[in-house]
């Protein structure tokens, strides 16, 4: 089956590349176009899709809650707030990539830790999601406060970042994103056994020989790394992290996290790529931010899941 997935993925990459092709005058321009526009856009779509899905899967595993995800649990909000502080808090104008990614990572990590503490106190799904929602609107209002103080230039910069985009990644940043993503994927593959045990809850996982604290920290770190770096480079992208892992469990009908991780990587990448292909096809008529597309498809699916559950 994964051979099939690979084929589909490669095929959609080719379609994507075909659609981003532009007639050029010379070799130099073709080079620029490839390295600075087509390739980073492709990488953004693949890594953001795969990364967000994987971080969603890990979150859902840690919280033992299929409705968890980097977006609903406020991980994105944390990254977003940190970025807002960096962009508009007057710390520094966003010239250093490291600053941007670092702060987004830190924000994501803090938010993830905060939500984990909350989840120990609150077992109920709805309450947890409500806290996530409140956290998101809280960070949103801090961002608004920052906006009213900040210089118009900085506000514009932040607003654009906040819309989410697969086209902002530069050729210099792409290797970083790929490297971070690679580390996170390998790290999470090392956790497969623990993730499988976590399905039964942390007490049972402990009795099955899982180092609870290490694994819990690892999951938080991986999630923050993935959601944080993707959010830093592409802005907040909604629903991918929530929808894809659920789809995986539903289609594969398994809790084997080796399969689920692979599914999330392949299908997450495919999903966001397909969304971008869609937006490329629509481009001559009107332009849709990637966030709009993912929400258009993701939100109804999640609503369906919730309805089916109750």
């Amino acid at each position: 089956m994964f051979i099939g997935f690979t084929l589909v993925l490669v095929l959609s990459c080719l379609v994507h590349l075909e659609l981003t092709k532009v007639n050029v005058l010379n070799e130099v321009q073709a080079n620029i176009l490839w390295w600075e526009f087509r390739f980073p856009r492709l990488v953004s779509a693949l890594v953001a899709g795969a990364g967000l899905s994987l971080s969603g899967l890990l979150m859902q595993n840690l919280f033992r809650n299929p409705m968890a995800g980097p977006y609903v649990l406020g991980i994105n909000s944390g990254a977003s707030l940190a970025t807002a502080l960096l962009m508009m808090g007057g710390f520094t104008f966003v010239s250093s990539n490291l600053g941007l990614v670092g702060s987004a990572l830190l924000g994501a990590m803090l938010a993830a830790t905060f939500m984990l503490f909350v989840s120990w106190r609150i077992q109920q799904t709805t309450s947890l999601l409500l806290v996530g929602l409140m956290f998101a609107s809280f960070t949103g209002s801090i961002e608004s406060v920052l906006q009213s103080w900040a210089a118009p230039e900085e506000v514009k910069q932040f607003f654009l970042w906040n819309m989410g985009s697969l086209q902002q990644l530069t050729a210099q940043q792409a290797p970083w994103l790929i490297a971070i993503f690679g580390v996170a994927v390998i790290w999470s593959l090392l956790l497969v056994k623990a993730l499988n045990a976590f399905v039964l809850g942390q007490e049972q996982a402990f009795q099955l020989g899982v180092r609870i604290k290490t694994v819990r920290f690892s999951i938080l770190a991986i999630t923050a790394i993935l959601a944080g770096s993707v959010t830093a480079y592409c802005g907040p992208i909604a629903f991918v992290g929530l929808a894809i892992p659920n789809l995986g469990r539903q289609l594969l009908r398994t809790q084997d996290h080796l399969h689920l991780i692979l599914f999330c990587l392949f299908f997450g990448a495919f999903f966001l790529l397909a969304c971008d292909v869609f937006s490329l096809l629509l481009e001559p008529y009107f332009s849709l931010p990637i966030n709009v597309l993912t929400s258009l498809i993701g939100a109804p699916y999640i609503a369906y899941l919730v309805l089916r559950r109750s």
């Binding site: 593959l189 497969v192 045990a197 399905v199 099955l208 899982v210 009908r253 809790q255 996290h257």
Partner: peptide, 23 residues
């Protein structure tokens, strides 16, 4: 647990002995 089959569940008992991917 949703989507977890009985055989897989029983198989989780082998986690302490399993290789890295839990196969």
């Amino acid at each position: 647990v949703e989507h977890l089959s009985v055989a897989d569940y029983v198989g989780l008992g082998r986690i302490p002995y399993a290789s890295i991917f839990g196969k």
